[in-house]
Design a protein around this nucleic acid. Structure first.
Lengths: 234, 234
DNA sequence: TGCATATTCATTGTCGACAAAAAATATGCA
DNA sequence: TGCATATTTTTTGTCGACAATGAATATGCA
């Protein structure tokens, strides 16, 4: 078997290389296919993607900029750790951003925004119905990202994306060991949030977002406590 | 004159190249030495810094990640524009972050944090006393960045940095055309904020931060209005 | 002259190669 | 055998070169 790869020399358009590597790696990091601490070898990636080290490097620099990867000088870069010691800062920030972005969405959303949000809620409901934990995590991210976008404040939006991505890694970490029943109540809470946004009811949006955030934080903390009992070494 | 550059081949340590270019360019962008819209040529920079295009490129990718520079595919990258149409999103976000970070600083600061904050307040007061508008802008940024750091929430801290940097460009834009008297009242407001933080008085910290933020927003809006009268074309 | 097309030019995206740095391994001595 | 030092190996940081892309310019035709 001399030809292990019969694909043609893989012509790709000029600017597409970096984006592809970036997208794939980003996904693999968020899905924990590359767990925290995994060393990332440039030549290895270069072989895998069939390109030179230069575009790989650029993708890694971008990922480092978002904190998904850490680069120690002259030594290998590795997938960033999840910081369990400061999870409260995460909870604090995501609660605030849930509220702020949902409030703003109630004020500034367009009809198109609402359509998209409803679509994503549909997808979310499907993943919950089919007990697809991984799909649910991703769909939940998309749902709240769309709300943040409807709020039309790029500062809030980008922070929200970052928080949601960190949260995605965190949830992924627990749902691969514990598959409890998926919380169907969230579907209903999402529906209520959509209603408040559609009505332009800012205060209701704020209140619902707050409750929703508290629920999620509480759930993660429960998972954490359970996990701590099973892995007391941590 | 055959030798236009008598400096030795400029030996530099291995990892230092990118950082230098990044720091210098970042500064020049924030100081408006490179005004928004300036095209950034890679070979030109390579000559200027006496190195190959590779490290230049990496620095530019990092700057693009922070939104300080925009890269259009296959065509030159340029210094990002200041978005005048959506300044309200900036005002909204910076007001919120002033409040949140100051509140947190009141709760979580250490003695060392407080020392540093007082040092920076000292520097700020000096720049105001000497009517050094540019120095004041930079010192104000450092002051509030230190408060954000004392709050010990990396999510808030990084957003605050981004906002302060954008604000620095914005203020720089106006203070190069208008040198009104520098607002000495801010020195006093800063002092009050420090007191609230030192006392751990969260509510006072919040209230003062809010007032302070409103003041600054109002001042920028005044400058904007004045400018709009002078440049009605915009 | 005015416009459509072809050609040249400037600048980026990607490549393969080499040197520097740190880690991993081997060597020598007690 | 155990430790300090030398050597090899691995992996990154930087370089110069080349091709692709889009803009600028030149060319041809009405």
């Amino acid at each position: 078997m001399e030809d292990k790869d019969n694909s043609p020399p893989t012509e790709r358009k000029r600017g597409s290389g970096v984006k592809r590597v970036y997208d794939v790696l980003r996904d693999e990091i968020l899905e924990l296919a590359l767990p925290p601490g995994t060393p990332v070898d440039e030549v290895q990636l270069a072989e895998r993607f069939g390109m030179s080290r230069t575009p790989i490097r650029e993708a890694l620099v971008r990922l480092a900029g978002e904190g998904l990867v850490e680069t120690l000088p002259n030594r290998s870069t590795m997938v960033s750790n999840i910081d369990f010691l400061n999870l409260n800062t995460f909870f604090d920030a995501i609660t605030l951003m849930y509220r702020v972005t949902t409030r703003l969405a109630a004020q500034k959303h367009s009809a198109a925004d609402l359509d998209r949000i409803r679509d994503l809620q549909e997808k979310y409901a499907q993943t919950v119905a089919s007990q697809d934990a991984l799909g649910m995590i991703a769909a939940n991210r998309e749902f709240h990202a769309a709300i943040a976008k409807a709020g039309r404040n790029p500062y809030y939006h980008s922070l929200m994306i970052r928080l949601l991505d960190d949260g995605r890694r965190l949830l992924r970490l627990y749902y691969q060991s514990f598959d409890d029943r998926l919380p169907e109540r969230y579907v209903d809470e999402h529906a209520q949030i959509i209603d408040a946004i559609a009505r332009g009811d800012v205060e209701a949006a704020d209140r619902l977002a707050r409750v929703h955030a508290d629920q999620i934080v509480a759930q993660i903390q429960r998972l954490l406590a359970t996990d701590a009992r099973q892995h007391p070494a941590l």
